[in-house]
C-alpha cells in the first residue's frame, strides 16, 4: 500500500484526529501540574484509571467512560490527601496508585478478558480507535483545553501562590479540584493514544521542553501545547511509515519523539540560563559609595561593547569582567583615563 493510499484509510485519519486533540490537551493541564511540582500526578492517575478500564471490560460498558469516572474519583481522593498535607501524603498516593494498577489487572482476570485487551489501554492502540471513541476524545479534549486556557489567569494564580489566591477571594479548593479533575480527564483522553503507562509523558515532557527556552508562563503553556501536538502527530506519522519495515508502537514513538525534543532544547536552555546569570547587573547600594581601587591601564585594548569581554551593568556604568576582575573605564578631571577595579 502506498503512503497516499494509507493516509486515505479512515482508521489512519481517525488516529490522526485523536492524536491531534490528545497532543493539544495533555500539556494544557500538564503545565499546571508541573507548576505545582506534581509532575508525577498524571502517572498516578494513569495507574488508577487502569481499574476503571477493567471495570468497563468486566461490565461490558465503554471502558473510556468508566476510566473517566474512576480517574476523576482518584483525582479527588489525591487532592483531598494533598490538601490535608500530612507527612505521609506521598505514601498514601503510592498506595492509591498501586492499588489502582493491581485492581485493574485483577478485575481483568476475573472478567475473563485476556491481558492483551487490557494492554491496548496500557500502551495505547490509536490505530484501532473507533468513531465513538474519536468523538469522545474530541469532546473531552475540547473541554480540557477550554477550561485550561480560558481559566488560565485563575489557575495560574492558584498554582503559583495558594495563600495569595485565597486572600484574593478565589475559591482555592475548587480550583485545586478542577486541576485534578482536568488531569484525570486528560489521562483518559490520552489513554488510547499513548497508553495509561505513558500518559504522564505527554503531559509533562512538552512542558519541560518548552520551559527550557520560555521566560513567561504564557509562552510555556503555548509552547507545550504546540510541542505536544507536534510530538503526537509526528510520532504517529513516523510509526506509520516505520511500520513498512517493523512493528513500531505509535504510543512509544510519540513519547520518544517528545523526549528527543527535550534532549535538543535542554543544552540550549542551560546555555541561555548561564548567559543570563552572567549578565546579571551588579547590585548598587544607594547610600554607601561604590568601593573601588584604581588600577594601571595595562590593557592591550580598550574595553568597550565590542571587546568581547562580558559587560555587566553596575549602577550608572558598565563593568567589564575578565580573569576575575571587574574593570570600569574612568576618566578623571584632568582627562586622564584609567580603570577602576570594582
Amino acid at each position: 500500500m502506498s503512503p497516499a493510499e494509507l493516509f486515505a484509510q479512515p482508521f489512519i485519519q481517525r488516529a490522526l484526529i485523536a492524536a491531534f486533540f490528545t497532543g493539544l490537551a495533555a500539556p494544557a493541564v500538564g503545565t499546571y501540574l508541573v507548576q505545582r511540582r506534581l509532575s508525577l500526578m498524571g502517572d498516578g492517575l494513569g495507574h488508577v484509571a487502569v481499574t476503571g478500564v477493567a471495570l468497563g471490560l468486566l461490565t461490558h460498558t465503554s471502558p473510556t467512560w468508566t476510566a473517566v469516572v474512576v480517574a476523576v474519583f482518584g483525582a479527588a481522593v489525591i487532592e483531598l490527601i494533598r490538601e490535608r498535607g500530612s507527612a505521609n501524603g506521598d505514601v498514601a498516593l503510592a498506595l492509591l496508585f498501586y492499588g489502582g494498577l493491581a485492581g485493574g489487572v485483577l478485575l481483568t482476570g476475573i472478567g475473563g478478558e485476556s491481558a492483551t485487551h487490557l494492554q491496548e489501554y496500557l500502551f495505547g492502540s490509536i490505530l484501532t480507535i473507533d468513531v465513538t471513541d474519536v468523538i469522545i476524545t474530541m469532546v473531552l479534549a475540547a473541554v480540557v483545553i477550554a477550561l485550561g486556557v480560558g481559566l488560565a489567569p485563575q489557575l495560574f494564580a492558584v498554582s503559583q501562590d495558594q495563600e495569595f489566591a485565597k486572600v484574593s477571594g478565589l475559591r482555592v479548593r475548587g480550583y485545586n479540584l478542577l486541576v485534578a479533575v482536568l488531569a484525570a480527564v486528560s489521562v483518559t483522553v490520552a489513554m488510547r493514544t499513548v497508553g495509561l503507562l505513558l500518559v504522564s509523558a505527554l503531559m509533562v515532557v512538552p512542558v519541560a521542553t518548552s520551559q527550557q527556552v520560555a521566560r513567561s508562563f504564557r509562552t510555556t503553556l503555548g509552547g507545550a501545547m504546540a510541542l505536544g501536538t507536534f510530538a503526537s502527530l509526528g510520532g504517529l506519522v513516523i510509526s506509520i511509515f516505520a511500520s513498512y519495515k517493523a512493528t513500531v508502537a505509535p504510543g512509544a514513538t510519540i513519547v520518544v519523539l517528545a523526549l528527543a525534543c527535550f534532549a535538543i532544547t535542554w543544552p540550549i536552555g542551560s546555555l541561555l540560563r548561564r548567559r543570563r546569570r552572567l549578565a546579571e547587573p551588579f547590585p548598587v547600594d544607594p547610600v554607601a559609595p561604590v568601593l573601588h581601587e584604581e588600577c594601571e591601564n595595562t590593557h592591550d585594548h580598550q574595553h568597550g561593547p565590542d571587546c568581547g569581554h562580558l559587560a555587566v551593568e553596575h549602577g550608572d556604568h558598565v563593568d567589564y569582567v575578565h580573569d576575575g576582575h571587574r574593570h570600569a573605564v574612568h576618566v578623571d578631571k584632568a582627562g586622564a583615563r584609567h580603570y577602576d577595579e570594582h
Binding site: V34, S39, Q160, S216, R218
Partner: peptide
Amino acid sequence: SGVPASVWEI
C-alpha cells in the same frame, strides 16, 4: 514555581 513566569504575569 515549577514553571517560568514573567514579572508581568505575577
